[in-house]
Simulated scan of single mutants.
Amino acid sequence: MHIDLTGKIALVTGSNAGLGRQIAETLAASGAKVAINYLYGDPVEAVEAIRQAGGEAHAFKADATSPAELDQMVKEIEAHFGGTVDILVNNAGGMIKRVPNAEMDEEHYNKVMDVNFKSCVFACKAVAAGMIAKKAGKIINVASLAAHDGGGPGASIYAASKAAVWSYSKGLAKELAPHGINVNAISPGFIGQTAFHATFTADAARQATIAKIPLGREGAPQDVGRVTLFLASELADYLTGETIEINGGLFMR
Rank of each mutant, 00 (worst) to 15 (best):
Met1Pro: 09
Leu5Val: 09
Gly7Ile: 08
Leu11Trp: 00
Thr13Ile: 04
Gly14Leu: 11
Ser15Asp: 05
Gly18His: 07
Leu19His: 10
Arg21Phe: 00
Ala24Met: 01
Ala24Phe: 00
Val34Trp: 01
Ala35Cys: 03
Ala35His: 03
Tyr38His: 07
Gly41Ala: 13
Val44Glu: 13
Glu45Ile: 06
Ile50Asn: 00
Arg51Thr: 02
Ala53Gly: 05
Ala53Glu: 09
Gly54Lys: 04
Lys61His: 11
Thr65Leu: 01
Leu70Asp: 05
Asp71Lys: 12
Lys75Pro: 08
Ile77Lys: 08
Glu78Leu: 09
Ala79Met: 08
Ala79Gly: 14
His80Arg: 15
Phe81Arg: 06
Phe81Cys: 06
Phe81Asn: 08
Gly82His: 09
Thr84Glu: 13
Asp86Ile: 00
Asn91Glu: 07
Asn91Gln: 11
Ala92Val: 11
Lys97Val: 05
Val99Gly: 00
His108Asp: 02
His108Lys: 00
Phe117Gln: 13
Val121Phe: 12
Ala123Met: 09
Ala123Val: 10
Lys135Ile: 05
Ala136Met: 03
Asn141Ala: 12
Asn141Leu: 11
Asn141Thr: 12
Val142Phe: 05
Val142Arg: 06
Ala146Lys: 09
Gly151Phe: 05
Tyr158Asn: 07
Trp166Asp: 15
Ser167Ile: 09
Ser167Asn: 12
Ser169Ala: 15
Ser169Trp: 02
Ser169Arg: 04
Gly171Asn: 12
Ala173Glu: 03
Ala177Asp: 12
Ile181Ala: 07
Val183Leu: 12
Val183Pro: 12
Val183His: 12
Asn184Met: 07
Ala185Cys: 14
Pro188Trp: 04
Gly189Ala: 00
Phe190Ala: 14
Gln193Ser: 14
Phe196Ser: 06
His197Pro: 11
Ala211Cys: 04
Asp223Met: 02
Val224Gln: 01
Gly225Phe: 07
Thr228Cys: 12
Thr228Arg: 10
Ala236Gln: 01
Asp237Val: 02
Leu239Gln: 05
Glu245Gln: 15
Leu250Asn: 08
